[in-house]
């Protein structure tokens, strides 16, 4: 079974309001994204809110276009493009946050998008805990995760937090263990 199918199938076994940590190797990055956005979210008829602090949303949009993934129900909260000065073109489904240190603003943009998509359930993808950890200390990041995940649970949304295997640390594992129901390792069989 491919990584894409495997991730989608594992997510399909979860009840709504679940929060999971998805452990990913860099080589599987786009397979995992496809598994979530194209397979899982489409099957469950979810709107997807993709928080990116790793690479600019435009890079993900470009990849999704190449993969011919329908983007009509995918929205981005991009907190890396402005700080990288790489906002050449603005995608209509993208909201920008000035910096990955503005964690409250990330929550506010997610809140805004969940309000806009009211009526449909959502999946929120946080890409990634590792890149947010570069810009924020553990205490504030833990607090952010705790508030974000519990707020999303109350809205019956799925939360998927990317954790890059190559950058795993004890701090990050502890942080995730407190808020997630399960850790899924993205791998093929």
């Amino acid at each position: 079974m491919s990584v894409t199918t495997n991730v989608a199938e594992k997510l399909l076994t979860l009840p709504e309001s679940s929060a999971v940590a998805l452990q990913i190797r860099a080589e599987h990055y786009f397979d995992v994204i496809r598994g979530i956005l194209d397979n899982f979210a489409v099957k469950k008829e979810l709107d997807s809110i993709y928080i990116t602090s790793t690479i600019p949303s435009q890079s993900i949009v470009n990849a999704l276009q190449v993969l011919e993934i329908d983007m009509s129900n995918i929205y981005f909260v991009d907190c890396i493009s402005q700080i990288m000065m790489s906002m050449a073109s603005k995608h209509e489904h993208t909201i920008y946050v000035e910096s990955p240190t503005m964690l409250e603003n990330l929550m506010l943009k997610v809140e805004y998008l969940t309000k806009r998509t009211e009526g449909k359930n959502d999946i929120i993808i946080l890409d990634s805990i590792n890149s947010l950890a570069i810009h924020n200390n553990t205490k504030i990041l833990s607090e952010f995760l705790h508030l974000l995940v519990n707020n999303l649970r109350a809205k019956k949304a799925y939360t998927v937090i990317f954790s890059m295997e190559e950058y795993r640390s004890e701090d990050i594992s502890n942080m995730l263990n407190i808020v997630v129901d399960e850790t899924i390792v993205a791998a093929g069989e």
Binding site: L103, E104, M107, L108, E111, Y112, K115, R116, N136, N137, K139, I140, L141, S142, E143, F144, L147
Partner: peptide
Amino acid sequence: AGVLLVPLLKGG
């Protein structure tokens, strides 16, 4: 969608 509020993160 109006004024939205979230608690200020302290985080030390």
